[in-house]
Design a protein around this nucleic acid. Structure first.
Length: 396
DNA sequence: ATACATACC
DNA sequence: TACTGGTATGTAT
């Protein structure tokens, strides 16, 4: 690429510059700042679930995974440089006291289901990206919200008092509470005891002073704060969120005040351009280790550099890659969240189904691959991906 | 069409 | 001792 770069003439660059200007103007015309896109991301998800369920893990560095590979680590462990996608045995060298907990996928799936129920209240067409994160379009919710009474924006705190008294609320629970406790609420608060020595009058005290419930406002920030609050009440886990006019920016914003925070990028061209100027290219979804290295070699590390070198990039990268860079440098991204149901995925099952592969054939392929893997190990060869091999065998 | 590469969680 | 596994998409031939 550097060789190619050296052969570029002044004239080529000039011509490209004109092209870039035309494209920028066209993209600018397509800019849409009307949508409110939110990216929600659970904080250190797997690790947080394990810490929640095992209190002895809360104050120590821990990670979820195995000696071969870690999925994620808690913030304590991150101080030692222990990261997701790091082999456990290397993490142990960085942090000898690290506790590694095996993954409990079923548990994370269950928690994921819980948070998705909350997401659906704000955007029935939200797009889950993994068990712990999702994109939501809050534009419609926000419009509805403006005419909502306070009661629909009221949510209950979980209170743990000295006498082990809990009060919290779930809309779907139907357990009755004495009327005088929380007046004028559509929601039914639930009251239950978790200790022998408790007195109901505590509720009155809390309701009057400490704010057992909270009324959230009508702004986007309040709506997102409310959503995060509900997630925390329901799962005892925290989430971070980013609010922006498109998916690309929302994703970056959700990382800004992590953990347990949120960040809103105002929906104005000026704010977006300002934000994008100082944004390291590596932060952008789709620009990974390799692309970063290539861009760095061209003295590009932030998105402002990206914008300055678009003409050069058009001569070195493919049309699609260049187009992506172009969008990024202008702070543009998708404002339409592909609908959950409409997204077609090439799942393993689907592949098998479409290729008309019988369960029998599949297990035969798997067996074949297992045998092959065995033989390879005997020969001292490294087996990288057994699962994908069986899929490849079927594919062929 | 196929293989290989990059990226994401 | 030990460096994933699943999915999507881009690039090269």
């Amino acid at each position: 690429m550097m060789l190619q770069k050296a052969q570029i003439t002044e004239q080529q660059l000039k011509k490209a510059q004109a092209q870039v200007r035309r494209m920028a103007a066209e993209l600018e015309r397509s800019r849409d700042l009307r949508r409110v896109i939110v990216h929600v991301d659970m904080d250190a998800f797997y690790a947080a679930v394990e810490m929640r369920d095992s209190p002895e893990l809360t104050d120590i560095p821990m990670a979820v995974g195995s000696m071969s590979m870690l999925s994620t680590s808690n913030y304590h462990a991150r101080k030692f440089g222990v990261r997701a996608a790091m082999p456990g045995f290397i993490a142990k060298k960085l942090c000898p006291s690290l506790v590694i907990v095996p993954t409990n996928f079923d548990k994370y799936r269950a928690v994921s289901q819980e948070i998705r129920e909350i997401f659906a209240d704000y955007d029935p067409h939200f797009m889950p990206m993994s068990l712990d994160e999702a994109y939501l379009d809050l534009t419609d919710h926000l419009e509805q919200r403006q005419s909502w009474p306070d009661s629909l924006r009221t949510h209950f705190h979980l209170i743990i008092t000295r006498s082990n008294f809990f009060l919290f609320c779930k809309e779907e629970d139907s357990i009755e509470l004495p009327q005088e406790t929380v007046p004028e609420m559509d929601l039914s608060p639930v009251l239950f005891e978790d200790g022998p020595s408790s007195s109901p009058c505590l509720i009155h005290e809390c309701a009057a002073g400490d704010g057992v419930f909270e009324v959230f406002g009508k702004s986007i920030e309040e709506a997102v704060r409310e959503m995060r609050f509900r997630i925390e009440q329901k799962t005892m886990l925290t989430a971070s969120a980013g609010i922006a006019p498109n998916m690309m920016l929302a994703k970056v914003c959700s990382d800004k005040n992590k953990p347990n925070g949120q960040y809103r990028l105002p929906s104005t061209r000026e704010a977006v351009m300002e934000f994008v100027q100082n944004l390291p290219v590596r932060k952008v979804f789709g620009i990974g280790k390799v692309s970063e290295k290539m861009l760095n070699a061209l003295d590009i590390s932030s998105c402002s550099h990206l914008g300055q070198k678009m003409a050069l990039l058009s001569l070195l990268f493919s049309e699609t890659a260049w187009h992506h860079f172009m969008q990024v440098s202008l702070g543009l991204g998708s404002t339409i969240i592909p609908r959950h149901e409409e997204r077609k995925s090439m799942s393993t099952e689907r592949t098998f189904k479409e290729l008309n592969i019988a369960e029998e054939q599949l297990s035969l392929c798997r067996e074949l691959c297992e045998n092959l893997a065995e033989d390879m190990k005997k020969e001292g060869l490294k087996v990288v991906t057994e699962g994908s091999l069986s899929l490849a065998a079927c594919d062929s």
